[in-house]
């Protein structure tokens, strides 16, 4: 045992991690263990580290993260359900030097807002999309989402999702990756320290791509919803690893810059 007392460690000069200045002091309304909190934090840290608070506009969705504007100290627009990419399109085109990102859940982005996200990505809008996919509608009480896995019970698929009855889970991120306007598509998670670090790098890359004006950056964060899944936060993380990652495998789906194939440019030329 080292001969230093706790009180001598807890000193201002020894502080190595504290809350980002971009996060407000508002207590988050999310359930214990919710991936939204961690995802918010990573976005906040990226904004702080890039020094772009004064130039960042966030677009919040309808869903659990509708109140994201209470937690990140930046200017926000609160969108109608699914329409965040439309707002972002206009904000970015009218203020091209600003950083514009949408923050959307799977109900918002992959169900009601399918048209808006596909077309914004297809136009190659220079925006960053943070897509939090927990395979359920959290805010309305755990109903089936487009991304709900086969067999997964929800409030509106109480006996488990059945393809014949409810259709198949939608891999919208794979669809998005096909679009020539999209520069960067990746699927991450935030449930472990290593995963969170990788996700943060991906988010940072997504924001940096806006400076390069190379098209849309799309970052899916495979997430948990312990209230909707009716599991403890820790058990939710395990369930996610065992089930969600099989259907929604983590990793980059597209990196036009790395692959030196800014696809949309080929179309233009």
């Amino acid at each position: 045992m080292a001969d230093i007392e706790i009180k001598d460690i807890i000193k201002k000069e020894n502080l190595v991690y504290s809350k980002s200045k971009i996060l407000t002091d508002n207590e988050m309304h999310y359930c214990p263990g919710c991936s939204h909190g961690t995802s918010h934090k990573l976005v906040a840290e990226v904004i702080e580290e890039m020094g772009i608070q004064e130039k960042t506009i966030g677009i919040s969705p309808v869903g659990c993260s509708v109140l994201a504007y209470n937690y990140l100290d930046i200017d926000w627009q609160q969108a109608a359900h699914g329409r965040a990419p439309a707002l972002a399109t206009a904000a970015k085109r009218l203020m091209p030097d600003h950083f514009v990102f949408t923050y959307q859940g799977d109900g918002d982005l992959a169900s009601i807002g399918t048209a808006e996200i596909l077309h914004a990505c297809n136009r190659g809008e220079n925006i960053t999309v943070i897509f939090v996919n927990n395979a359920i509608y959290g805010m309305t009480g755990g109903q089936m989402a487009p991304t709900t896995l086969i067999g997964m019970p929800t409030a509106t698929s109480p006996y488990g999702r059945e393809a014949a009855l409810h259709g198949f889970p939608l891999k919208i991120t794979e669809l998005i990756a096909q679009l020539p306007g999209v520069a960067y598509v990746t699927r991450q998670s935030v449930h472990t320290p290593a995963a969170a670090r990788k996700a943060k790098k991906a988010i940072r890359k997504g924001f940096e791509n806006q400076e390069k004006k190379i098209g849309t950056s799309f970052i899916e964060i495979v997430s948990t919803c312990s209230s909707g899944w009716k599991l403890s936060p820790v058990a939710s993380n395990q369930w996610m690893e065992e089930h969600m990652f099989k259907f929604y495998p983590l990793g980059d789906l597209k990196d036009a810059e790395r692959d030196n194939e800014a696809d949309y440019k080929k179309y233009i030329e």
């Binding site: 460690i9 807890i10 000193k11 020894n14 502080l15 190595v16 991690y17 504290s18 809350k19 980002s20 996060l23 207590e27 988050m28 999310y30 214990p32 263990g33 919710c34 991936s35 939204h36 909190g37 961690t38 934090k41 935030v190 449930h191 472990t192 320290p193 969170a196």
Partner: peptide, 10 residues
């Protein structure tokens, strides 16, 4: 990984 960012580290 703390979703509510309530931990400071020294």
């Amino acid at each position: 990984v703390c979703p509510d960012t309530v931990i400071e580290v020294y």
